[in-house]
Amino acid sequence: MQTTAELLLLLVVLTDLAVLGSSRLRTCIRAVAAQGLLLGLLPVALASRYTVHVVALSAGTVVVKAVVLPLFLLWAIREAAVRREVEPLVGYIASLLLGAAAVAAGFAIATRLPVPDVAEPVLVPVALATVMIGLIVLTTRRKALTQVVGYLMLENGIYLFGLTQTESVPFLLEVGVLLDIFAGVFIMGIVVFHINREFDSLDSSHLTELRD
């Protein structure tokens, strides 16, 4: 029988694939928001008992990853009047296949990693797959906004990896990480806004032409 946590983790992988396969910026952002929600539910599903630590971590994650950051990204799309297409450097089919390969690699590698006592066996492979797919999105999408999405997924993967050690990682550290992402995405959003105003597009390859 599969546990709730396991099903949540599988849904996380599905949101990863949804980001890779969708051609609309908005769909990508919604998928990342859904992923944030799933990640927020995970600590509760994994915990043996509901401490303040677990519930607060869960609530904080949901608020930041599933509500604030997606709303901010959607706002950035509207304000910057970006074209809604993703414009990938690597085609959708190729990136979907790369994503499937990343998931396979995640599951293959995870069994060989010396990770101490993990409550949920799927956790580490899904974390690795999400990190790799985040990297794929980060490197193969041209728009600055999709790169933010990729960065968020990358971070989501790291967060998943952190969940293996929820019992021992202090609460403050996790809150600090959440704040970091929040600040990071905010700065990225402002940068995105300025790229757009400077070049009338969000194509980050323009940045290679910068001179003083």
Binding site: L14, G21, Y92, L96, A100, P125
Partner: peptide, 21 residues
């Protein structure tokens, strides 16, 4: 259209990976 079908293929492939685990 191929994107949609390959997406379905990715789902099935993920299913296989879960079974091979």
């Amino acid at each position: 259209v191929p994107q949609l079908i390959v997406g379905a293929g990715a789902l099935a492939l993920f299913g296989i990976i879960l079974l091979l685990r």
